[in-house]
Design a protein around this nucleic acid. Structure first.
Lengths: 139, 139
DNA sequence: TTGTTCTAGTCAGATTCTCTGATTAAAGTA
DNA sequence: TACTTTAATCAGAGAATCTGACTAGAACAA
């Protein structure tokens, strides 16, 4: 079985489970919105950077940030260092979803570790982290 | 960094590269179509199965198969064992894309192995394969 | 200083992907 | 036969994504 599909399946599983957990906790958010939201840094991130990180066009990122803003999960503030730019920042409301997502992530990792063992889990993480160096356009 | 994102990044990279290679070889196909096409078995697969495998609704799978059929990459034939069902089958035209995809996949694997080493690559594959057992809804 | 070029973001419009709900036809079952 | 389930499709809508064109501010070179 090809390694692309092999990577895709658990990746999709994580996405689905975390999104489900967050939505069930009362946060109305979609997968696409979450993918952008996840990339907003602690001091705010420019739209262009978000677009690159999420691997979508600026237009798409803008569209998703619009929705996140309407829903109150992010806010746009002027970038003091550049009059053209604005920083997208996570609001307190969105911060409240973080522990929910983290808890589900921890549950998933525990299940996986249970299934494949601590050693393999560590190896997996190491290999993926290194692959990120050559496959993450944001890194 | 969370393992979902860690999985997502190289998975997306593989998808993008293979799709690009196939499209550049003259096959007009989209990512969503490819995800369905990839799951069609050698003797044909029912729409419902494809939908499950690709984790989309039957309607979505049907929509994508319609497009693949129009483009000549698959055909629908009656299922001899069930009058309600039809089997989606890959055509010769689509078969021609297989070596292109395989070649690109081999290139990617070679690059990755170069970067993380043979041992880690084998460990990665083993861990992912096992994770598939608990995360692949189709398996 | 003044053009020219580049960059950040938005607007407009279209396409693609995906879903929910209802429907048809064939199987399976009591 | 009548009821239930299953495979697939139809209809309609919403979400996500793209390409191309535009505006305003920044950077830079002459």
């Amino acid at each position: 079985m090809n390694i692309g599909l092999l990577l895709f399946i658990p990746s999709r599983a994580v996405e689905n489970r975390i999104l489900t957990a967050v939505v069930e906790a009362g946060f109305e958010i979609t997968q696409a919105q979450a993918r952008v939201l996840m990339r907003v840094g602690p001091d705010g991130t420019r739209l262009t950077e978000l677009a690159e990180a999420a691997q979508v066009t600026k237009q798409t990122a803008g569209f998703l940030v619009d929705q996140l803003e309407k829903a109150g999960y992010v806010e746009r503030v002027p970038d003091p260092s550049d009059g053209r730019a604005r920083l997208v920042r996570v609001t307190d409301k969105a911060q409240e979803a973080v522990p929910v997502a983290n808890a589900e992530m921890a549950r998933i990792e525990a299940e996986w570790e249970q299934h494949i063992g601590k050693r393999r889990m560590a190896q997996l993480r190491e290999a993926l982290d290194m692959l990120g160096e050559i496959t993450d356009p944001y890194r």
